[in-house]
């Protein structure tokens, strides 16, 4: 019997540094599968964020540039503008994109830069140890919101997909999740669609992916998946928010 499950060519054969139960690995794999299926690995440049996924370039077998915190969309703009023939994507967490880098992502989207952004939203700062993110839910406890997020003081969480889809410039904006196999399949389809739009030089695209952080949420991986579905998906509705048609 032949192999029915194998590593995508776009992924390196190494162990990741991610915590047990972390969903970054799933999202990496989905991107790698899409890159393989579209045959674009040798023509792609990824832009790494600052955050848990800073070492993403160790897990892919393609070119990368490593950004500063939040600046990945500006860097992707520089790459794509001088080399429009390349496929370019950014991979960013919620602190990176929705907090320090919110200006860069809004303006890149508004210019209609022809690259793809994968936005991993797990409602917490991972690498720095579980601090409050701009996407932390109301009442959610973190190491810097020990009594739970107080929306009177720090406002409501930012819904990036909705925010970016309000721009008048055409784009492809969708929110999906990796909390169940059904959702994972939909996420992959959306990522593929985003890269296809880029191949057609159509528009900017952003796929927000609802994700988990068992370590910083203080949960088991299974509890974390349940919490994400029960709590996060209530506030962060899944679906396509904007298409270029």
């Amino acid at each position: 019997m032949g192999k029915v499950f194998k590593k995508p060519e776009a992924l390196s054969d190494v162990h990741t540094h991610y915590c047990p139960g972390c969903t970054h690995g799933i999202i990496h794999r989905l991107i790698a599968e899409v890159i393989d299926e579209l045959g674009i690995r040798e023509n792609t440049v990824g832009v790494a964020p600052v955050g848990c996924a800073v070492l993403i370039y160790d897990y892919f077998t393609l070119d990368f540039q490593e950004s500063a915190h939040g600046r990945a969309p500006a860097m992707a703009t520089g790459i794509k503008r001088v080399r429009p023939d390349l496929m370019v994507f950014t991979y960013q967490g919620d602190g990176d994109m929705a907090s320090i880098g919110i200006s860069e992502i809004i303006h890149a989207a508004n210019r209609g830069e022809k690259f793809t952004s994968i936005f991993v939203n797990n409602a917490v700062y991972g690498m720095t140890g579980g601090q409050m993110a701009p996407t932390t839910l109301p009442g959610q406890r973190t190491t810097t919101s020990p009594e739970g997020r107080n929306v009177d003081e720090v406002g409501m969480p930012i819904r990036m997909a909705e925010l970016l889809s309000s721009l008048a410039t055409p784009g492809y904006i969708a929110r999906h999740s990796v909390t169940s196999p059904k959702y994972i399949n939909r996420t992959k389809k959306a990522i593929k669609k985003a890269f296809q739009y880029q191949m057609e030089n159509r528009c900017f695209s952003l796929i927000e992916v609802i994700s988990t952080c068992p370590t910083n949420w203080g949960m088991t991986p299974v509890e974390a998946l349940k919490w994400a579905e029960d709590e996060m998906l209530q506030f962060y509705q899944l679906g396509e928010y904007k298409t270029p048609e």
Binding site: S67, A74, T77, G78, I79, R81, V82, E104
Partner: peptide, 12 residues
């Protein structure tokens, strides 16, 4: 942002 556009282009 400009300084990182320069980074990305120079990085190519």
């Amino acid at each position: 942002a400009v300084s990182y556009m320069i980074f990305g282009a120079a990085g190519c």
